[in-house]
Nucleic acid binder design. Structure first.
Lengths: 347, 347
DNA sequence: TTGAAAGCGCTAACAC
DNA sequence: GTGTTAGCGCTTTCAA
């Protein structure tokens, strides 16, 4: 069943059917009605492939994430998909699982399907693999790391804002020895967070102790290992700031195993504010980087680029703030003598 | 740049280019070589839309999940996508977020994109919305709930197997009062789990106490609420089996808040074995239903159906076993007098 | 083995 | 306002 069939039955031309379906306003209402009637009766709907072929517009956006099984991403996917549907776009997701091979093949697939734009949510991983896309002037949106060139948008994350709040929050609670568990430092987003930490410390005149900065890998296991490291420091830190929530959860886990209590024995702050952060024990104080907002910005960036005639020569920038969300994993630093001090939490 | 361009430059016809690219064996190796050379030089690759249009095969499978932000699903998506890529298929994901509207629109989108098959991972939610797909004989694969008709496959989950192991494990640890927190009972998969629990209890002659079976909703919050309920029972249960891991995590959370220890004060078993189950404290003993295997089976079912000429009149069935994974959330039931008994865990 | 040509289902000029 | 028609880029007969 195709557009010709509809045209025949409605006794109009295929052009009229096409116009009707695409809601072109110049169609005579009476013809339109006839067309819709037949369309409904037959349950007809257009073939997207044919449409895409002739119009040159696939109405597909690509979405590359580094790992869908990382709790940070599902929310992004969800929101991105939601908005896409509203705009009649389809989305091609690929989870690269940190393998360059996968990245390569997914770029290829996206090119083959003629995506109109791609959101790259890999936070700094191997963008060189995207050369094919750039070459073909496919609109791209990156987080932080995109080059300044036409058709490439960037969502700049203001890491410092939230991290500063976190550091000052800890300082206000009289923490002097604040540790930082970073992500893998070859990722720009991880390096930027660490830098935010260092800057924030400097701003308030707290000396930087490199021994209190350990590298994790943004996983629970990494957080556990990092905290084990930190336990060997002397004196131990009284607060730990983590580069992401998964790391913080790893720290929590290790601390429980060791019988060290949060926030009584030390305070803990995460980063990202994944949904799970509310559900760990104690609920995790963390720097929020809204996944929903990120997805929205990314989609809008692509949509705008697709609709725009003359691309900005340096691309476009968007901004996303981060900010501290207080929960129950932070409290006053354990005083040198006092043993009685309580956090805001129940425990 | 299109196939004609390649043909011209390689001094062959477009048909030969097409055959070469599709690796038709009858092409003269020398011509093929010429073609490949040009293809490589120009970085040409075929337009999938055009291909799909003429061949009638989109090489797209749909994947409908009930909620991508539910930790059960990302792994399925990941594995499904992986296999799809290997077979040169693309996948169209939709997360219905439990809204019938979304389900409807996603079915529509899939039809428009001419998907060759759809995997429905919503565990019993509103399959009537899929009528359009059935009508058009699109191969479908369900978990548990599909109708027996041509082109519809079903993955039957052997819930009983794993649940029986769980119940017997608890019984062996001398638990007499075993509670069950179910999922939303209008979901067939949730009802089946509960039924497995009841059957397992009967098999070993333990009387069923309906007061110990409470309905949750497969979320952390639901688990917390359900456990609060259970706390009011007298005497309290010494073990709780949950319909999924999220529920169990809710139970854990509530119990921590109440200062009730696992497994010392009571034993807890989940269901699903999501990755997080290993990382909660204590690591959760749970009934595994392999998400990777589920994804594999679903993909294979679709692939087979697509390749098959004459569909089986009653569809095809696949089976997935469940089985208990021992971790550290279970231990001997607290004896009536003894206070000293320890689980297998460190704690 | 290769090429010419028809046509997949649709949109968009263009002519009326 | 509506219809005719020429393709979009590819695969696949059919003949040579």
């Amino acid at each position: 069943m195709d557009i010709r069939e509809i045209a025949k039955r409605a006794r109009v031309s295929t052009a009229t059917v096409s116009r009707t379906i695409n809601r072109v306003s110049t169609v005579d209402p009476r013809l339109a009605k006839r067309v819709w009637k037949v369309v409904d009766e037959l349950g007809y709907f257009p073939n997207t492939q044919a449409r895409a072929l002739v119009s040159g517009r696939s109405r597909i956006f690509g979405l590359i994430v580094s790992e869908i099984t990382n709790p940070f991403f599902p929310e992004i996917v969800q929101v991105f998909e939601n908005i896409a549907v509203q705009h009649n776009y389809e989305i091609l997701i690929t989870s690269t699982a940190h393998e360059p091979k996968r990245m390569e093949s997914s770029v290829r697939r996206m090119l083959e399907r003629r995506v109109e734009g791609v959101a790259v949510m890999t936070f700094g991983m191997e963008e060189s693999l995207l050369d094919d896309l750039k070459l073909r002037n496919v609109p791209l949106v990156f987080v932080d790391v995109g080059p300044a060139r036409p058709r490439v948008s960037n969502i700049r994350i203001d890491y410092l804002h939230g991290i500063r709040q976190a550091v000052q929050h800890l300082a206000a609670l009289r923490h002097q020895r604040i540790a930082f568990v970073s992500g893998p430092l070859h990722l720009k987003s991880a390096a930027a967070r660490k830098e935010g930490f260092v800057t924030s410390l400097k701003e308030i005149g707290v000396p930087i102790e490199s021994g209190l900065m350990v590298e994790g890998d943004h996983t629970i296991e990494g957080g556990m290992k990092a905290f084990a490291d930190l336990l060997n420091k002397n004196p131990r830190p009284t607060a730990v700031l983590c580069s992401n929530d998964m790391t913080a959860i790893g720290v929590m886990r290790k601390s429980y195993e060791e019988g060290i209590r949060i926030p009584d024995d030390f305070s803990l702050i995460g980063f990202d504010d994944i949904r799970l952060a509310q559900f760990v024990l104690p609920p995790l104080t963390t720097v929020q980087m809204s996944q929903a907002e990120l997805a929205r910005l990314a989609f809008q960036a692509l949509l705008k680029e697709v609709q725009r005639e003359a691309p900005a020569p340096q691309g476009t920038e968007y901004n996303l703030r981060t900010s501290l969300v207080l929960r129950q994993s932070t409290a006053l630093a354990p005083g040198p003598k006092s043993t009685a001090r309580k956090g805001r939490g129940k425990r």
